[in-house]
Design a protein around this nucleic acid. Structure first.
Lengths: 231, 231
DNA sequence: GGAATAGTGTCTATTAGACAGTATGGG
DNA sequence: CCCATACTGTCTAATAGACACTATTCC
């Protein structure tokens, strides 16, 4: 029996960064600077180096391409993509991560603002905006993953700034699930789930309208029982 | 700017095959024939070839190592494992799949029976049985994935033979979740969930005891509302 | 007082959880 | 009749779903 030499392949990490901006769910994209698909929008990402984990690679690429500093996004693994012909350069397997971040962070503190932008997720899903490679599928899968996480975990607070109101949190659910929720039932659910919210005692200041109570994310990670999407 | 050459790596697929045998949850393992970890039990798997997807590679390795024919196991992707030092031979990224199969299939129709065996999952989790590489972690993650799938999908029928009884299905839940379920509440849940079960009209024949009605898996994939594990 | 936003209470319907007795077959 | 296994009904508790009014602040 002769020695078997296993094939070598490139491994990429691709990251779907989602946020709620302008009351719409948006995804952070970068314009590709090189072929293939030069000038086409794509998910941020890149090849994994030999001395790093996939998660470290994802954080590094995020910092390089979009200016999101290491550790500012809590990355959730989504899945892997292995079709042999998914990259015209040759065999590339992609590992996909997803993160939810609050609206309006510095989107390009280290990246190039011209080549980094928020795009409404709906524009990609309905085909109005084409992405490079199979990134539209990565995005769709990441979105479904995010939707499921909102049901079973308290991760929605990761979409919000450190201090947020009930309405902020509700808008996250509504825009990610693309639905409208009953204000009163939502209130009951999030306030009666132990550890979901920690009241700060502070209130918003604003022009017009009653000030809203501010909350911080609580300790709970699981949402049990879950928050249901439309049956 | 000089041309960037991305690192090349080996990609392995590893498969966690679970079944309920002898009223215990068991996992299909193979004894490694080569270094590293020669003679140690490991999950079936191997390196991905250049012209196949990860799922095709998983089916191929299953057939080669365990005799489970291509397509006889419905493979569910679980996740990826990328720590740089997880394989002493060098950089190997593993893609993990899981499948649930009925008890007592031919375990080694194409594999070597001496090197293929069922091991109680509990023996691995409690440390009584050591696995090669980080396969104990892959198994633990795959098990958690299976447990969650049982909650939200009708996949438990995949553990059962084509025709099965309520008791068969209940034992699957009980052994995967490692819990005891109330017979009556379980009956209500599975019979009132549209599309979970299709009655065949047949009954078991057996020595002693009332014959049980036989069912086939229904059309439904999602279990909505879910079947809850202990709160 | 008007505009804008925040914050809740109640009734009903569905489902889960707890619980024990009857039914059917073989010997 | 005894044994073994299958099958099911009811009451209660928890939670989701539907629904509308009051509260607070700014102008």
């Amino acid at each position: 029996m002769q020695t078997y030499i296993p094939p070598l392949m490139n491994i990429a990490v691709d990251i779907t960064i989602l946020t709620v901006r302008d009351d719409r769910l948006q995804v952070l994209l970068v314009k590709r600077g090189i072929e293939p698909h030069q000038g086409v929008w794509a998910l941020p990402g890149g090849f994994m180096n030999n001395d790093e984990t996939a998660e470290q690679a994802a954080h590094r690429e995020l910092a390089e391409e979009t200016g999101i500093p290491h550790g500012h996004a809590r990355l959730e693994p989504v899945g892997f993509y292995t079709e042999p012909d998914r990259d015209p350069r040759g065999r590339v397997v992609s590992l996909s991560y997803m993160a939810l971040i609050p609206a309006s962070p510095p989107t390009a503190a280290g990246g190039d603002a011209d080549d980094t932008g928020w795009v409404p997720v709906a524009a990609v899903l309905d085909g109005a905006r084409t992405l490079a490679f199979d990134h539209a599928r990565l995005l769709a899968d990441a979105l479904e993953h995010a939707r499921a996480l909102l049901e079973h975990t308290t991760i929605a607070t990761a979409f919000c700034p450190p201090e947020f109101t009930e309405a902020d949190l509700r808008r996250v659910y509504e825009r990610v699930w693309d639905t409208e929720l009953d204000v009163r039932n939502f209130h009951r659910k999030i306030t009666r789930t132990e550890g979901f919210l920690t009241p700060t005692g502070e209130k918003t200041t604003r022009d017009g309208g009653r000030p809203a109570a501010l909350y911080r994310a609580g300790d709970a990670v699981r949402l049990q029982p879950p928050m249901y999407r439309a049956r």
